[in-house]
Nucleic acid binder design. Structure first.
Lengths: 312, 312
DNA sequence: CGAAGAGCATAAGCTCAACTACTCACCTGC
DNA sequence: GCAGGTGAGTAGTTGAGCTTATGCTCTTCG
């Protein structure tokens, strides 16, 4: 690590490069960052002096500028460095707020129903000093963004997760079951119904749920588009509609209320691949003792849950 | 990305934090970085003002300082950022030198013998404009360090690789074979000899080779320490000694010269787990087109090589 | 074809942050 | 209690980077 010109490199230089790449011009970037155009021009000049290469191609006149290859490569590094700084900032903010005993956990509805209550009970027994703040979101992508920004420490998620600065842990496989009204002929079969048989029936579907989209793709692969007569994001509503005879639903087992007398649950025996529920966290952020403990508790609770249905 | 105090953060702050952590005192860190003690003290004060937390515990007097929890967490982020900057620097240096057509590849002896000649021939036929610079090292760890510093673009390696900023690709499994003098009773057996039978014989071993250490651990696991009568890092020497009847050797198949009339090669049928040869590169560095092409060629050549011995 | 406009570069001046040099306050250990 | 080593504080100077103002280049349009 010789003390060469790279030590003169400043974060503002990288921020400026990114702003120019985003905005497409020196002037817009300057405006965005609250500088004058001249300042940005000088910053880029300094940056190019430091790395020794032209980073931005200025054709002159009102023609649009573009990043050189070196500029593009450096921009990727700059992005990574800024992301890492955000993670550091989030860690520091958490420590500053005295958050050693606070854990912000993201969930979505279908995982909330069965896993969360048990997990919270078990976790708060073993770690009463840790305050768990739950954040439920309809939009699953939002949860990932909050992880990336450091607004959440952990989140539940259906794996696999999109590429990003994430670390993941598989918790359990949640098989899909068919939910039908009491007395439905599909429930009377000795064998699990085929997808073809299911797709002929009216279906109650979900919105905003990638795991459910996945089911509909499976159904559509039979060659016949499923007839979705109603959509809701509330599992209770879906199950109520099934009970009322409006249609049937293909739901993850963990979301269905098995004590509901108006419906019957039919095992699909893997005809639709089980969804995988896991935990996701920011790969660059510090894992607090509380977070580690929460993960451990989640593993334990999910182990119980995956054994139970098999025994039942 | 609100323009808060974090934009005032400077790389020198992080470098200073790291220097203090390494040296254990403000003064030593200042000396190392070429500043006065006062400058370092002010830098840390500025850094603590930015993050809003005390990073270093100063007990006062000549008692040693220590990092607070926040300091340790921030230090890990700082290390990652500095590593990423080094990667960026290496990418820029490569571009500056007009290295689009140069590829620096690390190897070690045992992979050099069979794979490299074929690979270089095949690669230079398809990519004549790319200059490949080979760097062979006895010390395998040195190769990884050179990858990390950006002194190498790719290196061969026996997987798995130690944790670090690396990306790896498995190329082939190279099984171990027993090399014995012509006429050895072990070669006359109908079945592959057992480890117990091997360990009773005098062994020719290797130095400086983690893959070979692994073999000796396997042999020692029989309960009897192998009797290593000679060591050499040169495969030719080892094979020569076997041919001269000094002992026998357990070598990866790719390192042995099968045309040597003074020795016989005995298949061990997996009694010693095969070593895995792969390629390693820096996960944060830019992959040039030349590097991508080289990896492709390596995959193709190794596929051929792993099929051949099975057919032979 | 010339004027207008958009966009980056450059020059000059100013501000402020950071370094050096020096001093002080503090604690340990002999 | 004093010497030695450690970090903090203060004053002064230097320099990097910002703003303002201006210049240059290329395109567009009447």
């Amino acid at each position: 690590m010789e003390p060469d010109r790279w030590l003169g490199l400043d974060l503002r230089h990288l921020v400026a490069l990114k702003a120019i790449a985003d905005e497409g011009s020196f002037g817009k970037a300057a405006e965005k960052l609250g500088y004058t155009q001249s300042a940005i021009s000088q910053q880029i000049a300094a940056l190019e002096r430091i790395v020794g290469l032209r980073l931005i191609e200025r054709p002159g006149g009102p023609r649009p500028i573009s990043l050189t290859e070196a500029g593009q490569i450096l921009l990727r590094h700059a992005d990574a460095i800024q992301a890492r700084l955000l993670a550091a900032r989030a860690d520091m903010a958490a420590l500053e707020a005295g958050d050693a005993g606070r854990l912000r956990v993201g969930t979505f509805q279908s995982v909330g129903a069965k896993i969360i209550p048990r997990l919270l009970r078990s976790f708060s027994e073993t770690h009463p000093q840790v305050e768990v703040v739950l954040r439920e979101s309809q939009d699953e992508r939002e949860l990932l963004e909050m992880i990336e920004r450091g607004d959440l420490d952990l989140t539940f998620w259906t794996l696999p997760v999109d590429p990003g600065p994430y670390e993941t842990l598989e918790l359990l496989h949640d098989p899909y079951v068919l939910v039908v009204p009491v007395g439905s002929p599909l429930a009377a079969l000795k064998r699990p119904p085929t997808l073809k048989e299911i797709v002929l029936q009216p279906i109650i579907g979900f919105n905003h749920c990638s795991a459910m989209d996945h089911v509909e793709v499976q159904l559509a692969s039979t060659g016949r588009a499923p007839n979705v007569v109603f959509r809701s994001d509330n599992n209770g509503t879906v199950q109520g509609l099934v009970g009322a005879g409006v249609g049937l639903a293909v739901s993850p087992r963990l979301t269905v209320d098995e004590d509901d007398p108006s419906v019957e649950i039919v095992d699909l025996h893997g005809r639709v691949p089980a969804r995988v529920i896991g935990l996701v966290w920011h790969s660059d952020r510090h894992r607090s003792a509380a977070a580690e403990a929460f993960v451990e508790s989640a593993i334990a609770v999910c182990d119980e849950l995956s054994i139970e249905p098999a025994a039942a």
